[in-house]
Design a protein around this nucleic acid. Sequence first.
DNA 1: TTTATTGTAATCGTTCCGGTTACAATGTCA
DNA 2: TGACATTGTAACCGGAACGATTACAATAAA
Lengths: 141, 141
Amino acid sequence: MKITSRLTVAVHTLLLVSAFEDRYKLTSDFIASSVNVNPVVIRRTLQKLKAAGFVNIRPGSGGAVMAKDADEITLYDIYTAVDCVEGSLFNFHENPNPDCPVGRNIHSVLDGHLHTAQTAMENELKSVTLGDLARQLNEKI
Amino acid sequence: MKITSRLTVAVHTLLLVSAFEDRYKLTSDFIASSVNVNPVVIRRTLQKLKAAGFVNIRPGSGGAVMAKDADEITLYDIYTAVDCVEGSLFNFHENPNPDCPVGRNIHSVLDGHLHTAQTAMENELKSVTLGDLARQLNEKI
DNA sequence: TTTATTGTAATCGTTCCGGTTACAATGTCA
DNA sequence: TGACATTGTAACCGGAACGATTACAATAAA
C-alpha cells in the first residue's frame, strides 16, 4: 500500500516550471514528456497546483508559470495540494465490538500513537522546500 | 491512499490474546467477533503473526497464545509482520525522461527526503510496544 | 467417531490509480 | 476572421489491492 505518485509527479512538474519558465513554454505535453506520463495526468496535477496557488496556467495560449516563491512551498504543501492522504494515513477496522473491553477501547489506545507517527512523517515533509530541491538539482546539472 | 487496516486488526488481535489467553480460548471466531471482521481475516492475520514469532496457534483444538513478551514487540514489528508497506511508502513515477536534466536527476534529489520522512514515521512506531498498549488498555478497563 | 477449529484456495465486489480518448472552450497569430 | 495549439474536463478502461465470503480438507480433542 503506497502513497500515490501524484506527489512525485507534482514535485517534478514544479521543478520543471521553476527551472525553465523563463526559457520554455511549459505545456502539459512538454512536462509530460519529461515526467513520462500522459499529458492529461499533468493537466490534472496542474489544476491542483493552481488551486493551491503555486502556479498559474494560461488556457488557450498554453504554459504554466510559478505563482509563489519556491522557498515558500514545502513538500508537505505539495503533498496536501495533490491529496496524497485524506485524513489518517492508517486505515482502522470500523466498528470494533463495544461489548468487548478491547473493542471498546482500541481506538483510544491506538489512535494517538498512529497520529503521532503520521505527524512525524509529515513534519519531515514540512522541513523541505521546493527551493531546497531546486538548489540540489542545480548542483547536479 | 491509506495503509491497510491489517495493522490495527493485528494490534487488536494481539491485545486480545495477551489480555485473555489465560481466561479464554482465543479462536478466530472469538477474535473476529471483537474486531468485527470475518474470521478468515483473523486467521490470515494470525498466520502472519505466527510467522513473525509473536503467537502460537493450535490447529484443530483451536486458540492462539502469545509466543513473545509483549514488551518486546513494537508497533513497527507488527507493521512489518503484516506487510503494511512494501519498501517505499511513496510511489514514484517510473521512467522519468533521462534526456531532461530534471528527469535525469529527480530521483537523486527526492528519494532521500522521502526516505527520511518514511523513517521518521516508522521510528515512532518503533517507540511503542504492545506492552505499552496493554498497560494503557488496563487503565481504561 | 463426532465435533470444533485451523489452514488455505478461490471468487467477488469495491475502491483507487493512472492511461487514454474525445471534444468543447480558450487564446494566439497569420 | 479563420486556422491552430492548448487547456479543461468528462468518460471509460484495465489493473492492483483489499476485505468479505464460501468451501472444504486437515487436525486435534472429547
